[in-house]
Structure formats: C-alpha cells, structure tokens
C-alpha cells in the first residue's frame, strides 16, 4: 500500500447516491465515524485510540477510534487502499519493519499499551497471532511449523509440543488430513492446507487476538469454505480481526463489521445492520456494490 494508491481519483460519481460524502472525504474533509451503540455493550479486548499513520509524507490512517469486542469476529471492509491491512498490521506492530512508517496515537490490548516506548515488541507479538494473505509456511516440517512460536520460546518438552501441535491442528480443522505426515515438509501441501497450517501456527501460542489479513483471497471456493467454517468454530474462543475483500464472507463470518474508506473509519456496527440497514449512504453504496 503506497502513497499513490491513496491518492487515486475518487470513484465514479455518477453512480453514487445523493448525499454521498465520498468526494468530500477524498478532498480531505474530516468525517466523524458512525459507531453503533451495540458496541458499547461489548467487553472490549482491543481498543484503538486516535490512531494516525503515515508512509513517509502520505497519511494512510486518519484518527481511527474503534474497539474490538472480545470473543467475536470483527471484519474490516473497504475498497483497495483504504488502510484495512495497514490498520491490522499496526496492531502487532509489523509496520515497524518498514522504515518510513510513522504513527501517532495508541492502541491498548487488554488494557496494556501497544505503542508505549517501553513495550517489548517481541513479547507483544507473542500475544497475537497473524494469518497472511498468501500462505507462508516456513521451510520445515508441518510439526515444526505449528510449534514454531513455542520453539522460539525455548520449549523443549516433547509432550507439551505434541499436545499443542494436535490442539492447534484440530483447531485449524486440518488434523485429520495431516496427522500421519507431521514430519513431512509443510511446503508440499496444497494452498488451502498451507493456509490452515498457518492458522494452526497462529493459534498455537493461544493468542489474545487473531489477526487475519484476507486469509482466503488466494484460495479456491472449497478451501475458502473450510476456512470460513473454521473461523466459525474458533469464534468465542478467540477474538478475530479479519480483513476481507469479499462482502459475502464478511456477512457470513463476522459479528461486527467496520467499513473504511481512504484511511478513515466510516461506519462500524453489527454485521447484520451494516449489511441490511446501514446508517450512512456511503456504507450502503459500498456493501451493495455500487462502488469499490
């Protein structure tokens, strides 16, 4: 995501409805995020507070304020380049790896700050799991892939590792497919299986939040189905923050949906409401496919 994509021309205005503020947003006007009252009743695990982010001089996120409810699936939707992935990667500070990134504001996970100067980034990342757009299994066996986060913590106890491996693989709904070949390379699996191995790896350390960055975008419909079922099964046990391009997927899997546009959080509320009776016309235009 670069500065260029953010400065793209606004979408086709002729097709937008009356009262649409997209052009004004593109021109730089500040908008207040429309946050539904249902969220206030939830128990929050992650709260994002006045978060701004720049890539060099180009601003990618504008004053994001949102809270992610515990044990629920929250979807981030929006057109390409709206900052969904950037926001997700800011949660576990993966953006730190990019030299030109600068941030303002803070996030709190279970009350503890993410961006305070004394935070140990490595310890912080251990509290979260992340699944990427393209599956990225490590060049090692299936078993070693899954227990990777325990290995780097120095866990040597075979019994603990075996237990975690099985639990995680079951959680990722792939145990039955790979239980007989745990010592084989994870790179020999199919794309969908690889992605589920990556999910197993992400949940092995029992993360407080599971971050998913378009986990199904590179998969075929059957593999996508399996992963969606798995997300359903993980719901309740884990808090999941998922970025998706696929409206149906957001509608099917998530409890809450946040709509983002050009680095702003536009509307955030229960998924049913967002998809059926959104408060803002911009959201309606987007979820019904009028633009984006």
């Amino acid at each position: 995501m670069t500065a260029e994509t953010l400065e793209q021309a606004p979408p086709n205005t002729q097709r937008t409805s009356v009262g649409n503020r997209l052009e004004e947003i593109a021109a730089g006007e500040q908008v207040r995020s429309e946050i539904h009252p249902e969220l206030a009743k939830e128990d929050n695990i992650l709260s994002i507070e006045h978060f701004n982010l720049w890539y060099g001089r180009a601003q990618a996120l504008y004053d994001i304020n949102m809270s992610v409810p515990k044990g629920k699936v929250t979807a981030l939707v929006g057109p390409s380049g709206c900052g969904k992935s950037t926001l997700l990667r800011s949660v576990n500070r993966l953006n730190d790896l990019i030299d030109i990134v600068r941030i303002e504001g803070d996030m709190k996970i279970n009350g503890s700050s993410v961006y305070a100067p004394n935070v140990d980034v490595i310890e912080l990342r251990k509290r979260m799991g992340m699944v990427f757009q393209k599956s990225n299994p490590f060049p090692m066996s299936i078993y070693e892939n899954v227990v990777y986060s325990l290995r780097i913590d120095g866990e040597r106890n075979k019994k603990v590792l075996d237990e975690v491996c099985e639990r995680s693989l079951r959680g990722a709904a792939i145990w039955d497919e790979v239980k007989d070949r745990l010592q084989e390379s994870a790179l020999g699996l199919s794309g969908g299986q690889q992605q589920r191995i990556c999910i197993a790896r992400a949940i092995a350390a029992e993360p407080e939040v599971l971050l998913m960055d378009e986990p199904c975008s590179a998969l075929d419909p059957i593999a996508t189905n399996k992963i969606e079922d798995m997300i359903d099964a993980l719901k309740g046990e884990y808090t999941i923050l998922i970025v998706t391009h696929n409206m149906q997927q957001a509608a099917r899997t998530s409890d809450y949906t946040a709509f983002m546009y050009l680095g702003r959080l536009i509307e955030y509320g229960p998924t049913d409401t967002i998809f059926q009776k959104p408060r803002l016309i911009e959201t309606k235009d987007y979820v019904t496919g009028r633009f984006g």
């Binding site: 576990n92 490595i122 990225n136 490590f138």
Partner: peptide, 15 residues
C-alpha cells in the same frame, strides 16, 4: 528469501 516468510516469523514473536 520471501519477505512473507520473515513477516510470518516476526508475527510469531521471533526476534
């Protein structure tokens, strides 16, 4: 070495 592999490792909390 693909950047995605490194990112995956960092995301697991590896130094």
């Amino acid at each position: 070495v693909p950047g995605s592999m490194r990112e995956g490792s960092y995301a697991c909390g590896a130094s």
